[in-house]
Design a protein around this nucleic acid. Sequence first.
DNA 1: AAGGTGACTGATG
DNA 2: GCATCAGCCACCT
Length: 106
Amino acid sequence: MIPFTQRVIELIHEIPRGQVCTYRQLAIMAGSPNASRQVAWILHSSSAKYDLPWHRVLNSKGNIVLSTEEGQLEQRTLLLREGVPFLSDFQVDLDQCLWHPHSIKK
DNA sequence: AAGGTGACTGATG
DNA sequence: GCATCAGCCACCT
């Protein structure tokens, strides 16, 4: 059985350029709908280690939510460079760029 | 083995 | 829309 963490990491790798995903969505796809905090924890602890496109992961409202200010700025820069549309400085337009891999239920 | 820790989320006032 | 609150869960000490 594939561990939850590895599952999430694989999913993040599948996020296409120019599109984004939410913590919750990843948790759902990884099989634990309510483990969004754990998804965040994974990003926090092993984004560099597994070479993840961590910048394509946002919270449920499409906001950039990082613990550090530098991180926020960096994420915004990376997303802008991929052509992701922003509604405001730190909020992307989920309607336009949310990743739809399969059917996601709410 | 028990308790702590998040880059979270939805409900509520 | 903003602030609080209380669930949530896999991983780390």
